[in-house]
Computed example of a mutant assay.
Amino acid sequence: MDPVTVITGTMVPLWRADIDTDQIMPKQHLKKVERTGYGEVVFEDWRADPDFVLNDPRYQGGNVLVAGPNFGTGSSREHAPWGLQQYGFEAVVAPSFADIFRTNCAKNGLLTVELSTAACERLVDLATADPSAPIRIDLPEQTLVAESVHERFEIDQHTKHMLVNGLDPIALTLQHDEDIGAYEARRPARKPTTPARA
């Protein structure tokens, strides 16, 4: 996956609490075997409402979603971060996230930034008043700046390492390819082995 370091762009305000993964990616779209085409169906049920924020042309191209608390609650599905990314979001900012959703995001290169409720409300107010208001998220420095909003955020250091270096779980494992190969070579022939990579 691509490294995540500094994200610049504009915000899309979606100030609702407890947005669950079935709203982010409706269950009827989980049958596909491909990992593409999810951006067009993200928030599909809510997009049926002409007044929904993603239907507002002023927010087209916004790449940072600012949402309410407990974002991503509900069932675990990687399709939710896939859809958000394929729509164009590079980060989601919220007061809190469901743990499984946050983990799925990290494994797929979508940054989740947890800020106080007050800070998120200021960002929503800013984006509502000016859809072109710029935002800058610096992951190495763990800072977020959007006009008068200047915040520092916390992030698990292992997750930060994965994102900054563009490492998904498979890439992390392959960093130990030589050690894995040496271990497999020492195993008795009667035990299962993993073939070496081509």
Rank of each mutant, 00 (worst) to 15 (best):
M25I: 15
I7N: 06
I7Y: 05
D20F: 01
G39M: 05
P13W: 00
P50R: 14
R35S: 12
K27P: 03
E78N: 08
L14F: 04
D99C: 13
P81G: 10
A17I: 03
R16L: 06
H79M: 09
E121L: 13
D20Q: 00
A106Q: 11
A118T: 14
Q23F: 01
V124A: 05
N55Q: 09
G9K: 11
G61H: 14
T8C: 12
Y59G: 00
V66L: 04
G88D: 02
F43A: 07
R47W: 00
A98P: 07
T10L: 03
A91Y: 05
S76H: 08
F43Q: 05
D56R: 13
G61F: 12
G9Y: 01
A119Q: 01
F43S: 00
P69I: 06
G74F: 07
H29Y: 15
T10A: 06
K32V: 13
S96R: 11
W46G: 02
T10E: 06
W15Q: 05
E78V: 04
G74L: 10
S76L: 02
N63F: 00
Y87P: 06
A17K: 05
N70P: 05
P57G: 05
K107W: 05
V33L: 14
V12K: 03
T117G: 02
P69M: 10
E40C: 13
V66R: 01
K107C: 05
V41F: 07
P95Y: 03
E40Q: 15
V12C: 15
S116P: 04
F43T: 05
E44W: 13
E114V: 07
H79P: 04
G39F: 00
N104R: 11
V41P: 08
P95A: 13
D51S: 12
Y87T: 08
L54N: 01
Q86Y: 08
T73M: 13
G62Y: 05
E90K: 15
G39I: 04
G83S: 08
E44V: 03
Y59I: 10
G83F: 02
K31F: 14
Y38T: 08
V41I: 13
I19M: 02
L84M: 14
L110E: 04
E40V: 12
P50N: 13
G72A: 12
E78P: 03
E40M: 11
E34Y: 11
I24H: 00
N108L: 14
F52T: 02
A98L: 12
P26F: 07
Q86S: 01
E40A: 15
T117S: 06
V33I: 14
C120D: 10
K31N: 14
V66F: 02
G88R: 09
L14M: 10
Y87N: 08
T10Q: 11
V113R: 12
F52P: 01
T8F: 09
Y87G: 07
